[in-house]
Design a protein around this nucleic acid. Structure first.
Lengths: 185, 185
DNA sequence: TCGTAGGTATACTGGTCTGTGAATCTGACG
DNA sequence: CGTCAGATTCACAGACCAGTATACCTACGA
């Protein structure tokens, strides 16, 4: 990707997330990234494609943050709930909820690439939870993983509201992991 | 509200939810409800106001459905998770996630009436969970209520994705209620 | 030295959007 | 019969939007 292309994606990430995809026009993105609209179209071809790149790039950044947090855990049981810790720091700069759920809300057409990207992201997180739970020796890793995903998404979805759900979600997630690794079970 | 006004709101409920607020123009709503655009503006003044009415009306319908389900429960412990049962039947005709979360995604301006309506809705559900938990004699009703809310919103948010999270969420919700009313605690 | 890729500058097309103006119609109710 | 609110008809303003056309500039590598 050319330097101009990179600047465009950076601007798109900020504007699309903060103001919504439909509300942000290509002219604004071009102006914001100090680039001509012609360049934007030479690089990405269409707004829809730029939206797809924006989501894919954001997904990539988020996954590497999660991976970092997971790898920074000594205890395998602690690692299972590492994505909740990522969410805590991630939320400091991202207070408009989940970019992928939001994108689905704005782009109802199921054939839009955004739908595949969003589905892939959630599926990736579910699989990660499964793998981490299995590695930590949790009972019924499949159910536990789905439970953790629901808690994660619930905390993320309610983030734009004045409810402060993350601490409670994280606590419950840890309790579930603890319970499924308890010697009694 | 005049008969025409009611038809407009009905059309708006369907179109806004299924296709997104920004993607649906007032012309489409007018055509869909068999009414002139002039009438629409005479009744509601602006699209933003119509959006607010749409959300308020949907909220009203949903609350009465929840109340019905709650009132249909014999066991107070069963009543605590009644909103999850409502969500099950509600989801049969509403597969695009939460209309309020979606509205926040599309309307980033915090001064838009949609924000207040959405916040009120989630706050109402949280309070309901608290009341029901207290009535059922649950320990730590406040924390339990927040946990249930997160599960509810998580199931709702992941609904547009191919994940089938509702059964697992409902099971966990019931288990949490059971645990907090156990004689041991 | 010359071609080419990446970028700039600017004007423009065709369409859609929210919202308004002005005149007319219709039916219920006093 | 007269009034008036609700509704229709239809044209139109003004803004914005995605995407295109054309011409030009610049740096770099064969």
């Amino acid at each position: 990707m050319t330097p101009a292309g990179r600047r465009i994606v950076t601007a798109a990430e900020e504007l699309f997330y903060d103001r919504g995809i439909t509300s942000v026009g290509v002219d604004l993105i071009a102006e914001y990234s100090g680039v001509t609209k012609r360049t934007l179209y030479n690089q990405f071809g269409s707004k829809d494609h730029l939206v797809a790149v924006y989501l894919a790039e954001r997904d990539k950044r988020w996954r590497s943050r999660v991976r970092e947090t997971v790898d920074g855990c000594d205890d395998p049981a602690e690692a299972v709930t590492a994505p909740f810790e990522t969410l805590r720091t991630w939320s400091e700069a991202n207070t408009r909820g989940c970019a992928f759920i939001n994108a689905l809300a704005e782009l109802p057409d199921p054939s839009h690439p955004a739908h595949r990207i969003a589905a892939d992201q959630k599926h990736w997180l579910l699989t990660l939870f499964k793998e981490l739970a299995t590695a930590a020796g949790c009972a019924d890793a499949d159910t536990l993983a789905t439970r953790l995903l629901v808690l994660h998404e619930g905390a993320l979805a309610t983030q734009p509201l004045p409810l402060d759900t993350l601490p409670v979600s994280t606590d419950l997630a840890r309790a579930l992991v603890r319970a499924s690794t308890a010697p009694g079970r």
